[in-house]
């Protein structure tokens, strides 16, 4: 194996990692504020990709190969996914928030099943082919030819992560989000409208999931009602690995998981079938050493 191959493997790991990271951010943002795991997030991701497909089918001229059309496609899919996530929170989680920690969790699993079956029954039981974004072929970087599509995916994911960073660190709403994550009750006493902050958090997390759904469709070329399950589980794992509730942790965890998978299937003989075993063994080992994840902080039990 020579340089070109290694470089391609790095790009493979980065693309996979970027998609995992984007999804992991959705889990971690919600957990940071409500300390609940939004199991419906994988379905929000799936709905994002179906929204993009719908747009591409019903307004094909609008969603051309132009960068503007592509950006519009992302914007609409993200808005749809974000909105779905907000509605789920409003109707399935908020009424249960004060009852017990377990109730919203079960409700989340219920929402996940409902959404998945709605698409299964009303849209399609089969894989639908996802339109290609007009980037194909290879580009040459450092003498290595790299898949152009992967670079677009990587660029879009990194761009969104940068936007999120700006939003959380440099806007008033971001500050409010951090305050709520820090201490929910006190933030409320300081005049922060907790429900609004929660709704916005769900919107942002859902939008990132929706974007990941579009990237997923582009990357694999076809989408299906159950596509969210596997990447959702992996991304949730990534979020835990990085320290759930921690934004940088989610990104780090996503990339580590992506690289672990590439390492397993690309470098270990007959490693493809051991990929998940290897990735999850590493996860267990990390959690044994650092139970709160790589970047997670040890927090005292909230009372």
């Amino acid at each position: 194996m020579h340089f070109e191959q290694h470089f391609q493997q790095i790009v493979n790991g980065l693309t996979l990692g970027a998609i995992y990271s984007l999804i992991a951010l959705g889990y971690t943002l919600v957990y940071g504020i409500l300390a609940m795991i939004n199991f419906a997030h994988s379905e929000v991701l799936m709905l994002g990709s179906f929204a993009a497909l719908g747009l591409a089918v019903f307004a094909p001229t609008f969603f051309g190969a132009s960068p503007l059309g592509l950006a519009a496609l992302f914007a609409v899919s993200m808005a749809v996914a974000g909105l779905v996530n907000v509605l789920v929170e409003r109707f399935a989680y908020r009424p249960l928030r004060t009852i017990s920690r377990l109730a919203p969790l079960i409700s989340a699993i219920g929402v996940s099943i409902v959404l998945q079956n709605a698409v299964f029954l009303w849209i399609s039981t089969q894989a639908l082919s996802f339109p290609q974004p007009g980037v194909s072929g290879q580009v040459s970087i450092f003498g290595a030819s790299i898949s152009a599509l992967q670079l677009v995916i990587l660029g879009a994911a990194l761009g969104l992560m940068a936007l999120l960073h700006f939003f959380v660190e440099h806007t008033k709403m971001g500050k409010a989000m951090r305050a709520c994550a820090d201490d929910f009750a006190t933030a409320g006493l300081m005049g922060i409208d907790a429900n609004k902050v929660i709704a916005i958090t769900f919107f942002v997390g859902g939008a990132l999931g929706g974007a990941a759904g579009v990237l997923y469709g582009m990357n694999y070329g076809s989408i299906k009602y159950n596509l969210g399950f596997l990447p959702g589980t992996k991304a949730f794992t990534a979020a835990v690995l990085g320290g759930i509730g921690n934004i940088r942790g989610a990104v780090l965890g996503g990339f580590i998981l992506g690289f672990l998978e590439v390492l397993a299937s690309g470098y270990i003989p007959d490693g493809a079938q051991w990929r998940d075993v290897i990735a999850f063994t590493v996860l267990i080992v990390v959690l044994l050493v650092r139970p709160s994840g790589l970047l997670g902080e040890k927090t005292a039990e909230k009372v």
Binding site: M1, Q5, Q8, Q9, N12, G13, T15, L16, S147, Q150, N219, Y220, L230, P231, E261, V262, L263, A264, S265, G266, Y267, D270, G271, A272, Q273, D276
Partner: peptide
Amino acid sequence: EDGVAVGDKDFKALLTK
């Protein structure tokens, strides 16, 4: 010689190999 799992989506690392 490699085995893949039914349901796997990403074979790029394997194919690069």
